[in-house]
């Protein structure tokens, strides 16, 4: 029965090849299955998940106030030292008390691994992750950012 097995082998082999070709043939003729995303073209319609960890930002409200007290929890939580907080002492005009505040919130985007531990550690929710991802620049110095805006101050009531 050698001949019979031989022919059976060939038939089953051809059948398996034909099954594969039928499937690829289906995709060749059905262009609606195409899943390509044309990235730079679809920039306007691109929706990223709101939780996407793209970079650390510090939201400011309309009075140019933020919620950062300069406690350096985030700096301690950061595993790779991409946060450096430089603090200063503000003198309150009315009471004359000295109060700790941030001078510069330095964020090294070039060191950041987007782990989100700083956001998790922040007691006042002063920072959050923004869903941006187009970070490439020609000069690496541009990746070192100051997150608090000029002239901003701590929102009243945030301790």
């Amino acid at each position: 029965m050698f001949i019979k097995d031989y022919i059976k082998d060939i038939a089953s082999a051809l059948k398996s090849l034909a099954t594969g070709m039928k499937m690829t043939g289906y995709y060749f003729t059905h262009h609606k299955e195409i899943i390509t995303e044309q990235y730079p073209d679809n920039r306007d319609t691109l929706v990223l998940a709101e939780r996407f960890k793209g970079e650390v930002v510090m939201p400011h409200d309309e009075n140019n106030e933020h919620a950062c007290t300069g406690c350096t929890s985030c700096e301690l939580a950061c595993p790779n030292g991409s946060i450096k907080i430089i603090t200063k002492f503000d003198v309150d005009a009315e009471t004359g008390k000295r109060k700790k505040a941030i001078d510069t919130w330095v964020y090294h985007l070039d060191l950041c691994t987007m782990c989100g531990l700083c956001v998790e550690a922040c007691p006042t929710n002063a920072i959050k992750m923004a869903p941006t991802f187009e970070h490439s620049v020609f000069d690496r110095n541009k990746l070192v950012k100051k997150l608090n805006e000029d002239g901003s101050k701590v929102r009243a009531g945030v301790e």
């Binding site: 690829t24 060749f28 299955e33 899943i35 044309q38």
Partner: peptide, 13 residues
């Protein structure tokens, strides 16, 4: 183009 369409891609465009 054949490769792209089989691989559910657009191919050169």
């Amino acid at each position: 183009k054949v490769a792209a369409w089989i691989q559910i891609r657009l191919g050169p465009n």
